[in-house]
Design a protein around this nucleic acid. Structure first.
Length: 691
DNA sequence: ATTAGGG
DNA sequence: CCCTAAT
């Protein structure tokens, strides 16, 4: 099967053409490529995640104290449709500040090993963007509690029941905050958020590891590894949310196929179209609805059924995020970028997104949960005091996001292997446990001792600003101070208003793709927001005392309006065309360089079209832009030390000519008169310099 | 459609 | 090599 092929420059983060600037920034690459390349639905991720969570089954919820008072407990029941199994896991609560993390135990040693390997291999692996949608049917126990209680939340598949969330929510609320059958409440599914793909960087180590890993075992896989960019990287980073699948560049096919009918029906009609779309997506749409980052995801389907490939026709959103180039070379630790060491727990990945009805949400940052609706009710009067103990706050966690997953797999990898890989990556990250972080207005609340009331989480209005994040329980390495927290992405609906104080980060780019099987392409999403808002603990004080009064006891879950959510291009047709292929890389041969140099000597720089006609008339694959770029790289190459040069070595003589010509034409500001005359000048200059 | 320059 | 902006 051909995954989408993209050609990046391959593993190297650097491309030859990028000379002057040094390594090209990955981030851009990711973004673009991912976008172009294709996407894969990460349904699998969710599924796997869910599975893991389920295994956990009983997480320890902490109840701190007397029956009545548990400060917070969230029980999430997740049901994974695929598995048809339901298991529940609990989310921690933090009352006194102790937040618990999930312990995910991998039952299979293999997996553990694999995971270890993965981790070892790539610190950068991240699952991001995967979100689990939860709707709340809150139930139970809480009622009597004096303290605010977080109700159990269930994960449901949004998709299936787009609007159910609200109804459910309402119900639960209506019923009073009480009740509920915890067990009954079931999450139906997860939405998985997407993924973005990034191309593989060179990750030799990864390759190695992978090769060892069972999953990668298949021969083809191994075989190819060396040659292709097979690597999987996963890392948690707040900045990235996506997992990407990269395939090698084989674009030749693409090019050759251009004219010919391609087997792939989904193949984008034209690059141009793709570009347009991209553009569209990148700017207009997102700007219009920055909030709507979420993507729509199809709900997971039976995994095993290849025929119904989960990847097919899924829509994905992407966000672009920033990525540092050097990151390619430097291994990052898990989560390091996002990780902030908090007293409360680990890294924070802050962003909160909401997703509309669509099942999948993608968040920019790592794991994030969105509260869909929250209501507070006070069973007994709320005493004016902040500390009214009777008041209850209901939280409906709409989704949790999973940290980004970064995966590269060979094109020839099977879907099954991809699934495995994703699963492993997800498992790896879950394995170490998670912490739940609480965000208010996009700012992380670090003081676990603060009461909800103090934090202002008492009524719906306030609750809208709340977000939960699943934080990896690892890493303590990053410098806390440095880590910015991403602003939460608010939900389209209710959240909209919320962020008065917290700026919403515009999405740099995003797109939605459909993934077609034949060319499964990956898309990457990126986003990034680097807002560093610390949470405002102080702001709490400012909360109006009457906040409680304002609250409506039951807040219906906001219904997402489709419009609001309509991040996606209205025109369904366009969806398909988004997959854009990148041209294959065609390194210039020495002879081509020679021809180029010759032409430039004669024509000067700035006349690329002429150069093209003169020297590359027959090379339809060399556009004048290519020539210009090549010249740029040649100049750069000529200036750097031979040791730093890569690729097919260009004779020094040519490089000298390049420099001479470049210098000459720089001075003669493109005032090319007679080519010959100038050429003579160039040659002369060259001779002078060389001798 | 080209050109120029950033990524 | 891609993308954009400016011609």
């Amino acid at each position: 099967m051909v995954m989408k092929k993209r050609l990046d420059n391959g593993f190297n983060g650097f491309s030859d053409w990028t000379v002057p600037r040094g390594p090209r920034s990955l981030r851009k690459v990711h973004r673009k490529k991912d976008f172009e390349d294709g996407q894969i639905c990460a349904i699998e991720l969710l599924a796997s995640l869910a599975g893991k969570l389920l295994q956990d089954g009983e997480s320890t919820a902490c109840s701190n104290t007397s029956d009545g008072d548990h400060s917070v407990i969230g029980t999430n029941v997740v049901k994974e449709e695929r598995l048809n199994e339901e298991k529940a896991f609990k989310v921690e609560c933090c009352d006194g500040g102790s937040s618990r993390s999930y312990d995910l135990d991998l039952e299979k040693t293999d997996e553990k090993q694999n995971l270890k390997k993965l981790q070892y291999v790539d610190n950068n692996t991240v699952l991001d963007c995967t979100s689990v949608v939860a709707t709340s049917n809150s139930s139970d126990e809480a009622c009597g509690d004096v303290k605010p209680v977080i109700r159990k939340t269930e994960f449901e598949e949004y998709h299936t029941k787009p609007e159910e969330g609200s109804p459910d929510f309402l119900e639960s609320t209506d019923n009073g905050m009480n009740i509920g059958n915890e067990e009954e409440n079931e999450a139906k599914g997860f939405g998985i958020g997407f993924q973005s793909m990034s191309h593989a960087h060179n990750s030799k180590d990864l390759k190695k590891s992978y090769g060892k890993s069972p999953t990668m075992a298949n021969s083809s896989f191994k075989t190819k590894l060396p040659l292709s960019t097979d690597a999987i990287r996963s890392s948690f980073s707040r900045y990235r949310n996506y997992f990407k699948l990269a395939s090698r560049d084989d674009d030749e096919k693409f090019r050759s196929n251009k004219s010919s009918t391609h087997s792939n029906s989904y193949r984008p009609p034209s690059r141009i179209a793709g570009r347009r779309i991209r553009k569209l997506l990148n700017s207009k749409y997102w700007k219009a609805a920055p909030k709507l980052k979420d993507c729509d995801v199809a709900r997971s389907e039976s995994i095993d059924d290849e025929a119904q490939n989960p990847f097919r026709k899924r829509k994905l959103h992407f966000n672009t995020e920033k990525y540092q180039v050097d990151s390619l070379y430097k291994r990052r630790r898990f989560f390091d970028q996002s990780s902030i060491v908090n007293s409360d727990g680990g890294m924070s990945s802050e962003s909160v997104t909401n997703s509309p009805e669509k099942s999948v949400h993608i968040d920019k940052s790592g794991l994030a949960a969105i509260l869909h609706g929250a209501s507070v009710s006070t069973s007994s009067g709320q005493e004016a005091s902040f500390l009214s103990k009777d008041a209850h706050v209901k939280f409906s966690i709409r989704s949790f996001k999973v940290p980004e997953l970064f995966i590269d797999v060979p094109e020839n990898a099977t879907v099954g292997s991809l699934k495995k890989i994703v699963l492993e990556a997800v498992t790896a990250f879950l394995k170490d446990g998670l912490h739940v972080g609480v965000l208010v207005h996009g700012k992380k609340v670090r003081d676990d001792n603060r009461t909800l009331l103090q934090t202002g989480l008492t009524c719906k209005d306030n609750l809208d600003t709340v977000g939960f994040t699943l934080e990896p329980n690892l890493v303590h390495n990053t410098t806390p101070a440095l880590c910015p927290e991403d602003p939460p992405q608010m939900l389209a609906c209710d959240m909209t208003e919320l962020l008065p104080s917290s700026p919403v980060n515009p999405v740099s780019s995003s797109g939605i793709l459909d993934v077609a099987l034949p060319n499964t392409t990956l898309t990457n999403s990126q986003n990034q927001d680097e807002n560093k808002h610390e949470l405002i603990t102080t702001s709490i004080d400012k909360l109006p005392d009457n906040s409680l009064q304002d609250c409506k006891a039951l807040v219906p879950v906001p219904e997402m309006t489709m419009e609001a959510l309509a991040v996606v291009p209205l025109n369904p047709k366009s969806k398909r065309s988004e997959v854009v292929q990148r041209r294959t890389r065609r390194p210039f041969s020495v002879s081509e360089v020679e021809a180029l140099v010759q032409a430039v000597e004669e024509l000067g720089t700035g006349r690329w079209r002429d150069v093209k006609f003169r020297a590359f008339e027959n090379a339809d694959h060399r556009t004048y832009v290519d020539l210009k770029d090549k010249w740029k790289t040649l100049v750069h190459t000529a200036r750097i030390s031979p040791q730093q040069r890569r690729g097919e070595p260009v004779p020094q003589e040519l490089l000298d000519r390049v420099l001479a010509a470049h210098a000459y034409w720089s001075q003669h500001q493109a005032k090319q008169h007679g080519g010959k005359h100038l050429q003579a000048g160039v040659v002369k200059a060259l001779e002078g310099s060389s001798s």
